[in-house]
Design a protein around this nucleic acid. Sequence first.
DNA 1: CGTAGAAACTTTTTT
DNA 2: AGTTTCTACG
Length: 726
Amino acid sequence: MSLHLEHLNPEQLAAVTLPNGHALVLAGAGSGKTRVLTTRIAWLIQSGHVTPGGVLAVTFTNKAAREMVQRLAAMLPVSPRGLWIGTFHGLANRLLRAHHQEAGLPREYQILDTQDQLSAVKRLARSLNIDEDRMPPRELQRFINAQKEEGLRARDVPAGDDLTRRQVEFFASYDEQCQREGVADFAELLLRSFELLSRNEILRQHYQARFRHILTDEFQDTNRLQYRWLKMFAGPQSRLFAVGDDDQSIYGFRGAHVGNLAEFEKEYAKGQVIRLEQNYRSEGNILAAANALIANNAKRLGKNLWTAAGQGEPLRVFQGDSDADEARFVAEEVAALARGEGGEGLRLADIAVLYRSNAQSRVLEHALFGAAIPYRVYGGLRFFERAEVKHALAYLRLMASPADDNSFLRVANFPPRGIGARSMELLQDAAKQKGASLFAAAEFSSAKALPFRKLIEELQSETRGLPLPETVGHVIARSGLIEHYKKDREGADRVENLEELVNAAAAFTQEEREIEAGEESEPLAAFLSHAALEAGEHQAAEGQDALQLMTVHSAKGLEFSAVFMSGLEEGLFPHEQSLAEKDGLEEERRLAYVAITRARARLYLSFAQTRMLHGQTRYSLPSRFLEEVPERLKKWLTPRFARARAAGPEAPARKNAAYFPKKETFFAASRDLAGFRIGQNVTHPKFGSGVIIDAEGDGGEARVQVNFGRQGVKWLAVAMAKLQAA
DNA sequence: CGTAGAAACTTTTTT
DNA sequence: AGTTTCTACG
């Protein structure tokens, strides 16, 4: 039992042992925030300030929650069972399972993930004859989630214009549909549990009296509903402890409200703010780069991150001719780092390749595969999101919860069993008329669907009392899924994944079940929740040393000896979509800040001049973030991209000006443009550096369209403009 | 009803 | 480019 308080610096110690009162800890990257949080919980318990059952600790990711439980288990002689540690969604689910009746939900309610929610929205839009061009399902989905994240139901949303009024109406119907089918989306878990406690005074008092210490990690990422949710648990005796970093707020797009930090300080912490500013992770140059970059943001609470470490190496900058070229560089460099080149080689698992969007992983994977470097990709399509796995889960969900129409529609005719579009339509009409579920309607009004209903009922009785893995195994076989994929030439992977699902069920232990869902839950119900809430982050090849590939978002909270930040191009990072959003550029910059601060000793910054995206070649300029890192900290590995400074103050960024997709054609590429070609980098005496993105005319008449980044996009006559090849 | 191939669509980040 | 949806045909 060792808390090792002696290893903490004064600020960390103060945060850990704060005796009473609420507190806000502003913790910079690498300042030991997770350690402070876990050590505080251990300290509170060990010193008798609270019993394990009186702790409520909330994180954003399952990974963070698991890590916290593990670290606690190492520090304390208590089992993590009694502790309420988990993600917002996991804990909300736990609460709702325990009080499903009071919350107005069926015992076996199912959780809709993003995919499921979209199909539910589409289905409803169709049944309401909604014009999908005027109200695209995706936008309806976004609208609904945004409202729920603000804590609003349809009746609470002011319907100003006509469009909003329609959206609100749809929102109301959507919630009715969910209620009827016994399902809850992610935001619903939070909102429903919030409403449960705010309405039910007895329950609220019970939990308020129970939770003496409420601790939250990554507080900058909470949305308004989550903040209210936390406050709900805080009774007069409770103490709130929030840890966050405004510079690492990167979830604005899903409703995170950085303002919560300031509001928390005003409402609770009241000046009890502890700043952790010493960085223990990165060497000097890396930290200097991060500090210089983030200084460009106007909206900051402000802090001064420093390190006692030496300067270390400069940041290495690489310019690739293409995305493939960049990927090749990454692969070669990773191989060299692993070999060690005179020093001690790095473990692959201690090296990360980060990118802005998942689509970028493919070209990297290709190069790594070619170089025989083992790698693991995080994010992207996760295990429980794969089609075949979702099919299997749909059978299981129907068995547990027959009213789940989403699942019914997913597998009633998969594998094909003669229930075509027409039969399904008739069944849906019948169900609608009677206000019944599809499963119920299958009994009396569809000869075609009846055998399917029978199959589900047989599965229910055949698996009654069986252990979970055997239930899953039986279902994938009896449903015909395995057989169906075995017939498919390319179905081998899918069969493997289905078999892996049985393993996942076996690995889903008693202990995990209790931590995630509470003590009294059914094994199957708990497993289905687990599948929806934790999309299967940790699958496959565990244990083997492998390079880590992930988006910057999923890298938050992690650290590596060497980090590759790839695709540093205008339009990609910062992403062009973000520039149209309010405070979008600042959020992108915080994202870049998160990426830089993941590195301990070595950091690579790379970009490519051309990139294949969605089947088109894009020509792009280096990211402005690259320029915001001072030159003295960088070492160029490739001849420096000549960048003549434009005279005068910089023009404000123009929306979408920097990044234009352009179909590459032989015609355009081979046309006589007086020595220039599309995609070429050029400089102009007034506008600075740019890239040619289009052309018209030939020879002496030729005009080219040049993207000058922040200076905008201009058409220039080649003969007149003093363009120079760069 | 089921399938194959064509056409259309997407085009950021995630619990 | 990859995925989903549509269309034509057996």
